[in-house]
Design a protein around this nucleic acid. Structure first.
Length: 371
RNA sequence: GCGCCGUUGGUGAAGUGGUUAACACGCUAGUUUGUGGCACUAGUAUGCAUGAGUUCGAUCCUCAUACGACGCC
């Protein structure tokens, strides 16, 4: 089935939305945070641990699974859910971000984008049709249109041309799409130009996607510009469809963008930070490797209900991370994921109570107190 | 006791008669946003065993002392 978004209520003082999203694998509340599992695994974590953290949808990556193990292997396994033993919903990214992170401008043409296979050097062409074919085979619940995620800074002219191309790619992908149990999202680009964001939204809505993503943020533009880009996108998006802001996961950015009307977020930060020894708390972000934690036998957060906080001390995790033991990375990943999911739980509660601005001010005061 | 070699930071060490003593590890911090996972950036010896001498100038040359390794009695 196609996903279905139900808007339950809008917060009184802001654009924040409380809703639910119905999927093939259950109904989940929004705002929501999706952990990133690029290669059909959220790095260091088992599906059971993800469940314990309260994860709803998780994300996997078309580009990486295309190269390894290949979409046919996943198809023969019976789809991504069976392959990775995840019985919750899965969203696949299209490879559009890899246009930003891996390809050079000269590799981008109307047909698609040329990549060098990082494993064997092969020259590969990823097109909107190919991206959709791969995602159809992966059998995720939500597929993304293949777009061009441009960096920052850029010229207005480049953005204009890029938006038009992204729209043509969205249309090509949608026409090629062929999986009745899968949904397809369009991606809003247009950088910091309101008229281009508006134009992009309007053209995508004409194509009638199952949901809409906001792209081209978190690429070095800074917080103020990021919030503006989200505003310029949400302002024109239909209220009856879910809105997914791609790649954003800094706690304060999640709050600010929920306030601007975003429903879903994803970000590698909780797991990447964890692997590098960092953890988030209501009182800010810390490095577990710092000397002050050597003999700190208290949990990361007394009030956190995650597996790491209920069973292990900072001193122990400090030791594990310094000794480069993967269990330490796993414990911090569990905590950081749970931290962001708890944040979205708080935000949903704040929307119900119409006090999200107060929640934000309080959060900012505590999270940034040390800076 | 005699002979010979050696002594550089928290560790392993490179090196030179002349501005800031290489590098690695460790340590202290910082960065990380639709993941080319376990990376990157910065800081970290006012001093080259101790004392004296030669020299414009010594960690580097000379002598003595201490400590250590090896050999011989």
């Amino acid at each position: 089935m196609k996903i279905k978004y139900n808007l339950i209520k809008e917060e009184k003082n802001t654009k924040a939305r409380l809703g639910t999203i119905e999927t093939n694998y259950g109904t989940y509340e929004t705002p929501m945070f999706m952990p990133v599992g690029t290669q059909a695994t959220v790095k260091t974590m088992s599906p059971e641990e993800l469940k314990m953290c309260g994860s709803g949808i998780i994300l996997a990556n078309t580009y990486h699974l295309w190269l390894r193990p290949g979409e046919d292997v996943v198809d023969h396994a019976g789809g991504l859910h069976k392959f990775m033993n995840w019985d919750g919903p899965i969203l696949t990214d299209s490879g559009g971000f890899q246009v930003f992170s891996l390809a050079k401008p000269k590799d981008i043409c109307e047909e698609g984008v040329y990549f060098k296979n990082i494993y064997n050097g092969d020259k590969l062409l990823l097109t909107p049709e190919k991206s959709i074919e791969i995602q159809n085979k992966l059998d995720s619940d939500i597929a993304m249109s293949f777009d061009e995620c441009i960096g920052f800074p850029h010229t207005r002219k480049y953005v204009e041309d890029s938006v038009e191309r992204t729209l043509r790619w969205a249309k090509r992908g949608k026409d090629h799409f062929n999986n009745p149990r899968q949904s397809l999202f369009g991606i809003v680009q247009g950088a910091e130009y309101e008229d281009l964001r508006k134009h992009c939204v309007e053209e995508l809505v004409k194509m009638d996607f199952d949901g809409y993503s906001i792209g081209g943020t978190a690429v070095g533009e800074g917080k103020d510009l990021q919030y503006l880009q989200v505003e310029y996108s949400c302002k024109y998006l239909p209220k009856d469809k879910v809105r997914y802001l791609m790649g954003v996961g800094d706690p304060i950015d999640i709050i600010e963008n929920v306030i601007r009307g975003v429903d879903i977020f994803d970000c590698v930060s909780p797991t990447r930070l964890a692997r590098h020894g960092h953890f988030m708390t209501m009182n800010g972000k810390y490095n577990i490797k710092n000397a002050c934690f050597k003999e700190d036998f208290s949990p990361i957060e007394e009030e956190c209900d995650c597996y790491a906080c209920r069973n292990y001390s900072k001193a122990y995790i400090h030791h594990l991370i310094r000794a480069e033991e993967t269990f330490g990375q796993r414990l911090l990943s569990i905590h950081n994921i749970r931290f962001l999911i708890r944040l979205t739980e708080d935000l949903r509660e704040a929307i119900k109570n119409d006090n999200i601005l107060e929640y934000r001010d309080n959060f900012v005061k505590n999270y940034y107190h040390k800076k």
